[in-house]
Simulated scan of single mutants.
Amino acid sequence: MNTILILDLDGVLITTPPWKSDEIHVDGYSDFNQTCVSNLNSLLDYKPFDIWLSSTRRTNKSLAEFNQIFQNRDIKGMIRGFVPEYNSTKNRKEEIIEFITEFKLTDYLILDDDKSLNSLNPKLKSKLVLTELTIGFNSKKLKEAIEKLK
C-alpha cells in the first residue's frame, strides 16, 4: 500500500486570501496556485501516494469530479477517496484523528493549513506539514514534507 496523503485544498493548493473571490479555472472550479501544484507534483514524484481529500470542499463534488479537476490542473496523482464525515467529530482535527484511527494508518502525511492541527499529539503532529492560507504548499513546505518522509 502507498503512503496516504491527507490533503486539504484551501491554504495548500488554493491560496486566495479570504477577502477575495477565488479565481475560476476554465472548468468552472477554483483555480489552484501553480507553484503549489508544481510542488505537490514534486512530492508525488518523490514517493507514491494514495491521496485522500480532507478539505471541506469534498462535500460539494464527487470523487470523479475532483479527479477531473486534478487532471485539468495537471496534478500527477489521483484522489483515492474522501476523509469520511464522521457524526462524532466537530472539526478537521477530530476528523483526521478518527480517520487515522479507523483505518489504522501508520504511513501517512497530512498537508493542511488548519491551525487546530497544531494541537495534535506529537506522534500525529510529526506527520503534519502545516501551510499558510495565502502561501500554500511552497518550496519550503515541500522540503519539510520530504524530510518527514525520510
Rank of each mutant, 00 (worst) to 15 (best):
M1Y: 06
L5E: 09
I6N: 03
L9A: 02
L9E: 02
V12C: 09
T15H: 03
T15M: 04
T16G: 12
T16K: 15
P17V: 07
P17M: 06
W19K: 15
W19Y: 15
S21C: 12
D27C: 11
Y29Q: 14
F32A: 10
T35P: 00
C36H: 00
V37H: 01
V37C: 07
N41W: 11
S42R: 13
L43N: 01
L44I: 13
K47A: 08
D50V: 11
W52Q: 10
L53K: 04
S55V: 02
T56A: 14
R58G: 08
R58V: 10
T59G: 07
S62L: 04
A64L: 12
E65I: 13
F66I: 07
F66D: 00
N67D: 07
I69R: 09
D74A: 11
I75P: 05
K76P: 05
K76V: 01
G77V: 02
M78E: 14
V83P: 02
V83G: 10
N87M: 06
N87V: 07
N87D: 14
N87L: 10
S88G: 03
S88P: 01
T89N: 06
R92P: 00
R92L: 02
E95H: 14
I97Y: 02
E98F: 13
E98S: 15
I100T: 05
I100G: 06
T101R: 15
F103T: 10
T106I: 14
L109V: 04
L109Y: 01
L111Y: 05
L117V: 06
N118L: 15
N121P: 00
K123M: 08
L124F: 11
L124G: 01
L124D: 15
K125C: 08
S126V: 07
T134Q: 05
G136S: 09
F137H: 04
F137Q: 08
N138S: 05
K140T: 01
K143Q: 07
I146M: 12
K148V: 08
K148Y: 03
K150G: 11
